[in-house]
Deep mutational scan, measured.
Amino acid sequence: MSAKKSPEELKGIFEKYAAKEGDPNQLSKEELKLLLQTEFPSLLKGPSTLDELFEELDKNGDGEVSFEEFQVLVKKISQ
């Protein structure tokens, strides 16, 4: 996936994966893993990378990643 996506496209991608289980407005760690493996495969170099990335993105510590938290990752990789 190209990092150059419109905000609407990014929101659609986020919602597609977030709706798989639990809260449709939040990504669980498994949903984030699936999204990254599919859309940004070069970001995941191993299991520790996912854990570190999830911890970094989950700013409020609720165990899930909101769209706002996800946007931090998108901004970081599009620079």
Rank of each mutant, 00 (worst) to 15 (best):
M1I: 13
M1K: 02
M1E: 00
M1Y: 01
M1W: 00
S2M: 15
A3M: 12
A3K: 04
A3P: 04
A3I: 15
K5Q: 02
K5E: 04
K5Y: 13
K5C: 02
S6L: 03
S6C: 01
P7H: 06
P7S: 12
E8T: 08
E8F: 06
E9F: 04
E9Q: 14
L10D: 01
L10P: 01
L10A: 05
L10Y: 08
K11C: 02
K11D: 01
G12D: 15
G12M: 11
G12S: 10
G12I: 15
I13C: 05
I13G: 00
I13Y: 06
I13L: 09
F14G: 00
F14T: 00
E15C: 03
E15V: 08
E15K: 09
E15I: 15
K16C: 04
K16M: 03
Y17A: 04
Y17G: 01
A18N: 01
A19C: 11
A19Y: 04
K20Q: 14
E21Y: 07
E21M: 10
E21V: 07
G22S: 04
G22L: 01
G22T: 02
G22M: 02
D23P: 04
D23Y: 05
P24D: 04
P24H: 09
P24M: 06
N25I: 13
N25D: 07
N25G: 10
N25S: 09
L27E: 00
S28N: 07
S28I: 01
S28T: 05
S28K: 08
K29T: 12
K29M: 07
E30R: 13
E30W: 06
E31R: 06
E31N: 13
L32S: 04
K33H: 08
K33N: 10
K33A: 14
K33Q: 14
L36R: 00
Q37L: 05
Q37T: 12
T38G: 05
E39H: 07
E39L: 02
F40K: 02
F40V: 06
P41A: 15
P41I: 13
P41S: 14
S42D: 08
S42R: 07
L43S: 13
L43Q: 13
L44A: 15
K45E: 12
K45R: 11
K45C: 06
K45M: 11
K45I: 06
G46T: 12
G46C: 09
G46E: 09
G46H: 13
P47W: 10
P47N: 05
S48N: 09
S48E: 14
S48L: 10
S48V: 09
S48F: 07
T49V: 07
T49N: 04
T49D: 05
T49E: 09
L50G: 06
L50R: 08
L50H: 06
L50N: 05
L50P: 07
D51V: 09
D51K: 08
D51W: 03
D51C: 12
E52W: 05
L53E: 13
F54G: 08
F54Q: 11
F54R: 05
F54T: 13
E55T: 12
E55W: 12
E55H: 12
E55G: 12
E56M: 08
E56V: 10
E56N: 13
D58A: 04
D58S: 13
K59Y: 06
N60Q: 08
N60R: 12
N60M: 03
G61N: 06
G61F: 11
D62Q: 08
D62L: 08
D62G: 09
G63W: 03
G63P: 08
G63T: 07
E64A: 12
E64I: 05
V65S: 04
V65R: 03
S66C: 14
F67A: 04
F67C: 07
F67L: 07
F67N: 04
E69S: 06
E69Q: 12
F70T: 03
F70W: 04
F70A: 03
F70M: 04
Q71C: 05
Q71A: 09
V72M: 09
V72C: 06
V72R: 06
L73I: 10
V74K: 14
K75I: 03
K75W: 04
K76G: 12
S78R: 02
S78D: 15
S78N: 15
S78G: 01
S78V: 00
Q79H: 08
Q79W: 05
Q79T: 15
